[in-house]
Design a protein around this nucleic acid. Structure first.
Length: 493
RNA sequence: GGCGGCAUAGCCAAGUGGCUAAGGCAGCGGUCUGCAAAACCGUUAUUCCCCGGUUCAAGUCCGGGUGCCGCCUCCA
């Protein structure tokens, strides 16, 4: 099956055909660096991270460009409020963004260009638009004239008349048309500026993406992505600029991720329901957040709540328990001792072929417009099948077990590599998760282990009532015990 | 006002014309266990918001209705 992508421009799922066989150029609108990243930024980042990971895993050579808007009104506002240079603000929040992304396991894009480092490209592009008659300058500002660009509205499915009818009164009377947008803004006294043919000023918001995508990916590239709120006006304007300049559409496929809602409401500063990534990661292992988001299709809205993260954590633990069982079993039955595939019994072959079938289904789901929710369904079926194997096939000859365990691990490695979930060492995961949970609940590891030791002693004396009492005491702290012949282990629920 | 989306079990969530409607969480019964936990096995939607239509066949397509949401202004 071939890769399918839902293209916002046509509102249909289309077969993905890259411009250059075996290679993909993708541009995703990044953040404006004026504040820390919230869960909505995290979703966009994780969605496109998985898109890129999957395409790479299928053998495409992917050039992934994600920009930073490091000059903008909001950055200037913040710099003024804090009394610092705007660069200090943008650098601070770019660093914070990079830290958050690293924590979330989001791979660094191939190129991470900044607007301020591409002034030459932007000015050249604006000049070109002016020469071709698509732009006009007024008192140091330059505007794009949408009336002169006939296809305007093609991405968002609007036409000019509709928009004119619904347009609010624009206070900017320099514009010929209220829907015209700024390519270049004249700088006011004390604002940062760059020299240009129109005087001292700074670029408008949309132009940077046209300039940078063009520079790194060419006039037309494969995929352009971003949050669904960017469809209009940002991406519409990008298309207008690029097409007016080059005569070609900038991207063949437009992908937009859905929003993160909070209790079914839009996240917004006015509602005060912004959840910064840093805050969430204080209380939840990063993979919990990834799993939570990937359990829904990327175009659907997701509703964030503590409960849904807690559910995702339970599911994540389930998967990692299996990976832990698998790890232990593989130590017992190492790959070196495995049976050659030619000599496997029918039963062993049946396990391996079922693994392969799930891996195939996983790819089919991902091929179908990156359906991570469905793909995760197969991941969990793999979890069940692996558990089932480990529990049921105790008596299978060691070389066969080793062969099957090896295959199972390979399948999980692939899933983990694509989703960025279930990819780490299970013991490290449990340690990190435990640390987070203990910190969140204000529990001390020493106090817990002391109680566990006391209970161990009681158990050795077969003082079951004392042991149960201690179990209850620990349960009150959300500590769940697991007794095994090797001793007692505990987890935070 | 214009444009667009969504409605599937107690909750979350895939599925967009045809095998038994994925998967996760929660619940229940069983195996295991000193008791538990985990894991495994079994079980939980005769039905996909409502009404009508197309079709041999619809959760899936069409028309109408109801409810919720997003964009049209900076926004992932």
């Amino acid at each position: 099956m071939s890769q399918k992508i839902f293209n916002t421009r046509t509102r249909t799922k289309e077969t993905f055909t890259p411009i250059k066989e075996g290679a993909v150029g993708i541009y995703v609108c990044g953040i404006t660096a004026y504040d820390v990243c919230h869960i909505g930024h995290a979703r966009a980042a994780v969605v496109f991270d998985v898109v890129v990971r999957y395409l790479r895993s299928r053998g495409y050579e992917v050039t992934y460009v994600k920009n930073f808007t490091d000059i903008d009104d909001k950055i200037i506002d913040r710099a003024n409020r804090e009394g610092v240079d705007f660069r200090e603000i943008s650098e601070r929040y770019i660093q914070a963004h990079d830290d958050d992304m690293a924590a979330l396991g989001v791979q660094t894009p191939t190129v991470v260009p900044k607007a301020t480092e591409h002034m030459v490209e932007m000015i050249t592009l604006i000049k070109n638009l002016e020469e071709k008659g698509y732009a006009y300058s007024v008192a140091g500002d330059v505007y794009f004239s949408i009336r002169d660009f006939k296809p305007y509205g093609g991405l968002s499915g609007r036409n000019l008349e509709e928009m004119m009818a619904g347009a609010r009164v624009d206070v900017n009377d320099k514009k010929k048309n209220p829907l015209d947008f700024a390519l270049w803004k004249n700088s006011k006294e004390g604002e940062p500026f760059w020299e240009s043919p129109w005087g001292k000023g700074r670029p408008g918001w949309h132009i940077e993406c046209s300039a940078m995508s063009g520079r790194y990916l060419g006039e037309t590239f494969d995929i352009h992505g971003g949050g669904e709120d960017l469809i209009f006006p940002h991406h519409e304007n990008e298309i207008a600029q690029s097409m007016a300049s080059t005569g070609k559409p900038p991207a063949n496929y437009w992908m937009h991720n859905g929003f993160v809602k909070i209790n079914s409401e839009k996240m917004s500063k006015s509602l005060g329901n912004i959840f910064p990534v840093q805050e969430i990661l204080k209380n939840y292992h990063p993979e919990i957040l990834r799993l939570f988001m990937l359990q829904s299709h990327y175009r659907s809205p997701v509703d964030y709540s503590e409960e849904s993260l807690t559910e995702a954590r339970t599911a994540l633990i389930r998967g990692y328990r299996t990976l832990q069982l698998l790890k232990e079993a593989r130590m017992q039955f190492p790959a070196e001792a495995r049976q050659e595939s030619s000599g496997l019994s029918e039963k062993a072959e049946s396990y391996i072929s079922r693994f392969a079938k799930l891996a195939e289904k996983f790819d089919e789901a991902m091929d179908d417009d990156f359906n991570t929710a469905q793909a995760l369904g197969y991941v969990f079926e793999m979890v069940r099948l692996t558990n089932n194997f480990i529990v049921e096939e105790k008596k299978m000859p060691a070389p066969e077990k080793a062969a099957i365990l090896e295959e199972a691990q390979k399948v999980f490695d692939r899933f983990g590599e694509v989703l960025g979930v279930f990819h780490g060492d299970p013991d490290s995961f449990f340690m990190a998760d435990q640390e987070t949970e203990l910190r969140k609940r204000g529990l001390k590891i020493d106090a817990i282990e002391d109680l566990v030791r006391q209970r161990q002693a009681a158990r050795q004396n077969k003082d079951w009532s004392r042991a149960d009492e201690l179990r209850k005491e620990l349960a009150a702290m959300n500590i769940v015990l697991k007794d095994s012949p090797a001793g007692t282990t505990w987890t935070v629920e």
